[in-house]
Design a protein around this nucleic acid. Structure first.
Lengths: 161, 161
DNA sequence: TCCATATAGATGCATCTGCATTTAGAATCG
DNA sequence: CGATTCTAAATGCAGATGCATCTATATGGA
């Protein structure tokens, strides 16, 4: 799979401890396909959203968290749920606030913090985006996998905390 | 899984054709975990490379393609293999050329094109990066999956062309 | 041959991300 | 209390990406 594996015999002779760190060929293939599949599918879905004149998926994630929470969230909580860096959340919220999809309000319990809530327009946008997003997931992932979706989810679950 | 599924009964009554486009719950879970797992693992591996003072993974991909090809490649070929946009390849090569890892030369057969080759320094960098990259793959994907790596690769393969 | 069109690659500009720093408010400990 | 330290969030700046456009060369037809 990889040029370095030509050194296997040599390395396992000299550094058996290091060799235990070498990934198996299956692991390397799975890695490559994980990276590639995510990029291809995400790109395709993003392109569908853009073609429909809708905002990028990052916006959907924020809207969905806020809709599901049914209560305003602090940026800090969004940060954790969305796995985004703090400064990144800050500016994503800037843009979404500018678009009128969310609103920031001071947080009573802590003068440093805000709470973020979804506006009616944001709720509408979340639904409009799902009308494109859901079918796109089905077409790009659900359909090709069929009954394989469950097993795939299970395997991927072992990679996540 | 998703708020919109509460509308299932209504929608399947009104718009059976539309409902066939709704993803199954398993598909949505697999989708979410695919996006998330890729982000988490790639982030972790990139962080290890950075901590070792090495360039980002995109550079490794270019170096590996050039090393494996054993012959200079045209930017157009890299574009296809790496699934990158043309302008993106152009600038990635700018940076790598600036770092002395690759070299561009005119392409005899077509005055518009170049060929890109890996320099000795680029070969060395590819090997140094693999020393971090390989074990990182094993630690973040190979170890948690064990024998599951093969099945995961097979399922992901169904998502790719 | 010459012009229209297509293709390889580079570049300008806006957006987005990462990193470091800053600001303002909380918490801790003397 | 008051000074130090810690934390939530914002911001300045550099690096990277997407998008449109531009330049130079190739190609194909009248």
């Amino acid at each position: 799979m990889h040029p370095v594996v030509n050194l296997d015999a040599f390395a396992s002779f000299c550094y058996p401890a290091i060799m235990s760190e070498e990934p198996t060929e299956e692991a390397v293939t799975a890695w490559a396909r994980l990276i590639r599949a995510q990029r291809v599918l995400l790109g395709a879905v993003e392109a569908e959203l853009k073609a429909a004149g809708l905002p990028p998926l990052g916006w959907y994630d924020v809207l969905l968290e806020l809709v599901r929470a049914e209560t305003p969230l602090r940026p800090l909580e969004l940060e954790g749920r969305l796995l985004l860096a703090q400064h990144n959340v800050s500016r994503l919220l800037d843009r979404m606030e500018g678009a009128g999809l969310i609103a920031r309000a001071p947080y009573a319990g802590d003068g440093r913090g805000h709470v973020v809530s979804v506006t009616p327009s944001g709720r509408a946008m979340q639904r409009r985006m799902w009308e494109v997003y859901g079918p796109a997931i089905q077409r790009h992932l659900g359909a090709p996998l069929g009954e394989g979706a469950g097993p795939l989810a299970a395997l991927l679950g072992r990679l996540l905390p």
